[in-house]
């Protein structure tokens, strides 16, 4: 199976600061991909480069075989590569209904709006109860559901989640994990950045440890690792 996304030798950063150094990785060949590693080592920057929010200085990013470097974020969303950013900040003064309508803004997603809305409501019944409520009045877990729901409205062919469980209570984390699993089973491949290794091991088949703006270690399916080994990778030997 061909990878749906491959990042080839991408260097990127902000101004004179380079964050990503010639990073390469692939997603979609063995199922879902997890990225982990210490904070401040380029995971979020990599996602921003993939979704077109940040222009890489060099390298190629192939989505479904097509180089998307230099494409606008809008074109990339239009192609079905959907990125749920970190921190579920979203649109604080819009209602859930408004967010869902925005998710379906791209011409590719518009014809599937009703069908995707049903899917979101089935996945997150809690949102239906608060459909007209402003996002800022929701709990952290509910806001994360809105973020993911909005992404599903965009009819994703590849879904990127940046630390979906950040700051959530363990019980809500488990619920969210089950929902994300449902999405994956529905046929949408995932790239998940997470600090919670258990969450990643449950959801993904292939792992990358991102360190100093490059891939330090790749863990392919079958190379099962226990928690202790990953921890030692995290903190050095």
């Amino acid at each position: 199976m061909n990878p749906i996304l491959s990042v080839e030798g991408v260097t990127a950063g902000y101004g004179r600061v380079t964050v990503l150094h010639d990073i390469s990785l692939e997603a979609g060949r063995f199922g879902n991909v997890g990225l982990f590693g210490p904070n401040g080592h380029g995971k979020t920057t990599l996602l921003r480069a993939i979704s077109g929010l940040l222009q890489p200085k060099s390298g190629r990013i192939l989505f479904d075989g097509q180089d998307i470097v230099g494409h606008s974020a809008r074109a990339i969303v239009g192609a079905g590569l959907i990125h749920v950013p970190q921190g579920n900040r979203l649109f604080p003064d819009l209602s859930i209904a408004d967010c869902m309508a925005l998710g379906a803004y791209s011409p590719r997603a518009r014809p599937h709006e009703a069908e995707n809305r049903e899917k979101v409501v089935r996945l997150f019944p809690k949102l239906a109860e608060r459909w007209r409520q402003r996002v800022r009045t929701l709990s952290g877990g509910e806001r994360q559901m809105v973020s993911i729901g909005t992404a599903l409205m965009s009819h994703p062919r590849l879904l990127i989640l940046d630390e979906p469980t950040l700051g959530l209570a363990p019980k809500i984390k488990d619920e969210l994990c089950a929902s994300v699993m449902d999405i994956s089973r529905g046929g949408v491949p995932l790239i998940v950045v997470e600090q919670d290794i258990e969450f990643l091991l449950e959801l993904t088949q292939q792992l990358y440890l991102v360190n100093h703006g490059a891939v330090a270690t790749e863990i392919k399916p079958g190379e099962s690792l226990d928690h202790g080994e990953i921890m030692s990778m995290y903190f050095g030997h």
Binding site: A73, R74, V77, G78, H83, P85, L90, S106, A109
Partner: peptide
């Protein structure tokens, strides 16, 4: 309200 999030839902 949020420029980055607007980019990510595909707004121009």
């Amino acid at each position: 309200q949020n420029e980055d999030a607007s980019h990510l839902v595909g707004l121009n």
